[in-house]
Simulated assay, not measured.
Amino acid sequence: MAKKSRTKSRTTAGAAPAEGAVGPRQPCPCGSGKRYKACHGAPGGAVAAYVARPFEGLPSECDIVAMRELVPAATAPLTLKDDPERTVLLASLLPMAAPAMARESGQTWLGLQVQHAFGDPSRDLAAALQAALAADEPGIVSMVEPPVEGPRLQDLVTGDKLDVTVHEGFEFWIADLEDTTGMEAALEQANGAATPTARLTGVEAAYWTNVGTKEHLRWVMPEPEDELLTALARLHVAGRDVLVPDSRFVGMFRAHGLLAPVWDLPLGTGAEALEEPADRFAQDLAEALADTSDLTSEERSARSGLAGRQVTIR
């Protein structure tokens, strides 16, 4: 007996799919990484569309992006608009990758390195923060479903600049606890995965790290991508993008709407040796950003090469 056709109509009889329609198994155009049928194509759809630059307008936006994507262990206090005396700690990573925690000490902790793929990390963070603030008992706040429409983190916090502290490990997880029984294994595992990292003091959101085989400087910058690429191309052609001898500008990360240029550094460089060169580079970059002249053919070629050396994280 002949097999039945495995091809089935996916549209209502007599109806044709709209031109440009997204198929149910195709990636959702919101950028969540899910299939359309499991995201905006699901019954009720997703809560909100993908936000390309979710942390824009927050204090120290570039540091927040770095803490979320590049820095293993760092913290920064947040100031709430409605309750400035309340202790809220923003952390790169919390125990068990928790979105937020209500601590026994009365503090509220908010974790950045949680990948919900709900479309707008700022809204997700705000929802986790509100849940932790409203918790009746200490514990972890989990989020398995997209949050309902509500405020974004920009609506809840205030301030011009964050006071970022980079930690050698995750001992801050237990700093406010009297009884740390049972946490030793998790702490040891987390510390073992943390690469040595330091934040430069003279410029914003520039982080040195040692990954064992080499050192890097990763510097999150706030300028629009097109303008920044043009300025970096000018500096590259002029030979002004070398920070220290034998260092090399190798490309950029793109994360949450911002670019993070990356330099390879020889082993033994350290963070302190980068302070003066980074300050000088920041001044050169400002000069290149202000240059509105047409690019030379060599600069255009360099710009094209830089554009091809970008890795999108988020």
Rank of each mutant, 00 (worst) to 15 (best):
M1F: 08
M1R: 12
K3G: 04
R6K: 14
R10N: 13
G14L: 11
P17T: 04
G20L: 05
P24E: 04
P29M: 11
G33Q: 10
V47E: 13
P54G: 04
E61H: 08
A66L: 06
M67R: 09
E69F: 04
L70I: 05
L70Q: 02
T75N: 02
A76K: 13
D82R: 06
R86P: 09
L89F: 02
L94F: 00
P99E: 07
A100G: 11
A100Q: 12
G106S: 15
L112V: 05
R123V: 08
D124Y: 07
A127R: 10
P138S: 00
V141L: 02
P147S: 09
V148Y: 04
D155A: 11
L156T: 06
V166T: 12
D176Q: 13
L177N: 10
G182N: 02
G182F: 08
E184T: 14
T197E: 00
T197H: 03
T197K: 05
A206R: 00
Y207A: 15
Y207K: 12
R218V: 12
W219G: 06
V220L: 05
M221Y: 02
E225S: 11
D226H: 14
T230G: 12
D241C: 02
G257K: 01
L259H: 08
W263Y: 02
L265S: 01
G270C: 12
E275H: 02
R280H: 03
D284F: 02
A290H: 11
E298N: 08
R300L: 14
S301A: 10
R314A: 15
R314H: 13
